[in-house]
């Protein structure tokens, strides 16, 4: 019988979650890199609530839009790699949380904010983006999440 307090399991699940979220973000980034036609234009054009003015500004200026697209693509790749390899995990986790919260705030599933982009589920205030954003904070605050990663070597060196 496995105890739920078993430390190995706790570590294992944290690390697994780190791998999974890292995989998700890394693939999102790679997908955008492999599809040069991809642009955040459609997503930004649908922006509602407090960031809609910011989104409009981005899409009204093609050079800003290109920069945002590139930052987004490479940001996702960097965060994804950071999480999977556990390299600068805390920075990656905070950056990931920030980026996902930005996505969330661009199109929050609030009452009365109809969505033109079809969704695969039903959401009220909370959606998967928000959950993933908060889940990433685990990697910033639990040192165990840095097991099985390059940070453990770096930290070790620093300690030595």
């Amino acid at each position: 019988m496995v105890s739920i307090n078993n430390q190995k399991w706790q570590t294992g699940i944290l690390v697994a979650l780190r791998f999974l979220i890292g995989w998700h973000l890394l693939y999102e980034g790679l997908f955008k890199l492999l599809h040069p036609d991809w642009s955040s234009l459609g997503f930004l054009a649908e922006s509602k609530w407090i960031l809609s003015g910011f989104a409009e500004w981005i899409i009204s200026n093609s050079s800003v839009l290109n920069i945002v697209d590139a930052l987004n693509t490479w940001g996702l790749i960097a965060i994804g790699l950071g999480l999977i390899l556990s390299l600068f995990t805390r920075i990656a986790a905070f950056a990931g949380t920030g980026l996902l919260l930005l996505y969330y705030l661009m199109n929050p599933p609030f009452i009365g904010m109809g969505h033109a982009i079809p969704l695969e589920g039903n959401y009220l205030i909370v959606n998967k983006t928000l959950i993933e954003a908060v889940a990433m904070l685990l990697f910033a605050i639990f040192p165990a999440a840095h097991c099985y990663g390059l940070d453990s070597l770096i930290n070790k060196r620093k300690k030595n």
């Binding site: 791998f19 890292g22 790679l30 999977i84 390899l85 556990s86 099985y148 070597l153």
Partner: peptide, 23 residues
């Protein structure tokens, strides 16, 4: 410890392989 620290590499490798397969 070094091997453990590199645990993420096979995950990245696996993702890379899957991306190639998918492409």
């Amino acid at each position: 410890k070094v091997l453990k620290a590199l645990a993420g590499l096979p995950v990245v490798g696996l993702l890379g392989l899957q991306v190639l397969r998918k492409t």
